[in-house]
Nucleic acid binder design. Structure first.
Lengths: 191, 191
DNA sequence: GCTAGAAAGCTAATACACGTAGCCAGATCA
DNA sequence: TGATCTGGCTACGTGTATTAGCTTTCTAGC
């Protein structure tokens, strides 16, 4: 009967450690409750339901990754910043594959995620600022970065590449391909 | 008491139509059974369990997509063939988002998928043949194609892009970026 | 310090889902 | 025709999400 002292945040903590340990599919209220030392229905005092918990986990992961990307861009500019952000993206996904799988792919379309998703985009947008792209160019350029980073990270973190060898090189080649495709303006001279 | 005349293939048919209609998460044995006009346990006469059914769906989808890609490459060569295969990949994923989500990301690591997965890779490898890449180059080049196609297709089919506008153009720019990155050898003169 | 009430835990019960066991009828084949 | 195999069924056990309603603990105000 002593209280466990749960809060929504602590429930999310438990959920994330569970996901890290046993994969995204193991994220069940029963398992989270056990990890919290509490009966399953008690979780409903802190979280609306399983869907809500999943959302909270997604928001947490999105925010955490954004922090990493922002840190990776800090103190860098131009191609250096862009490459650094792209590497940090991959690093996070490979270091925490199950968390990466918990990240929503369409954050901007769901209000719960919108703020965190916008912040992540802003990090990349800032890194691309030196190129002084038009709005339309910026849209295509951001999309291309997202395609490459998400494509590579989701494949690698899910074990999608047949051979583990030379993955670093494959990714560096993609980053070079991407940087090379950027228009040769202001930023290109900075590097 | 009249027999329903089920076979594993017909069960997979029902599963796929269910996935098309109601999404991958709706793929449950109960729902498939209802669609087949049969009680749930009867499905076990044709399919080992839910995991097995999921695998069979994945194999079917993988094979279906491979057929599309092969058809897209037919009668083309060089950049034309590569671009055509990449467009066909996206087209399939967007036309059948739930099926695309059912496709395994690591087919080569699971024996059930290996044959179908290998066949898909062969289509792309054939399209890249004119460049006469070394083995190591071929690995990186195939990976890059996979990253771009899967990255774009998975994001678009999951509603991951904020704005629906200009997606065709974004994809064409990526294809151009990719083709431009290929070494200027034999094939480049054919186009 | 006492007490009212909110907050946080619990048990019990419902609704589904997967999966197993074992029964029965219809098809097949000697 | 009759034996056997196959494909259906019902009944059951387990696990999960979720709701309802009870009880205990903490906290605020007097």
């Amino acid at each position: 009967m002593p209280r466990a002292g749960l809060t929504p945040d602590r429930v999310v903590d438990a959920a994330i450690s569970l996901v890290d340990d046993r994969g995204l599919d193991a994220l069940t209220l029963a398992a989270v409750a056990e990890r919290c030392g509490v009966a399953a229905p008690s979780l409903y005092k802190h979280v609306s339901n399983l869907a809500d918990l999943r959302t909270l986990v997604g928001v947490r992961v999105l925010a955490e990754m954004t922090d990493r990307l922002a840190a990776a861009a800090m103190g860098r500019s131009g191609p250096d910043a862009v490459g650094s952000v792209m590497r940090a993206y991959r690093d996070y996904a490979v270091a925490h594959p199950a968390r990466y799988a918990a990240m929503p792919v369409d954050p901007l379309h769901q209000p719960e995620y919108a703020a965190a998703g916008q912040r992540l985009l802003d990090v990349m947008r800032a890194a691309l600022r030196p190129w002084r792209l038009s709005d339309a160019q910026m849209v295509h350029t951001m999309r291309a970065a997202r395609v490459i980073t998400h494509g590579f990270a989701s494949l690698e973190s899910a074990g999608g590449f047949g051979l583990p060898e030379d993955l670093d090189e494959s990714y560096e080649l993609l980053i070079q391909m991407y940087l090379t495709s950027l228009p040769l303006t202001h930023a290109a001279q900075e590097s």
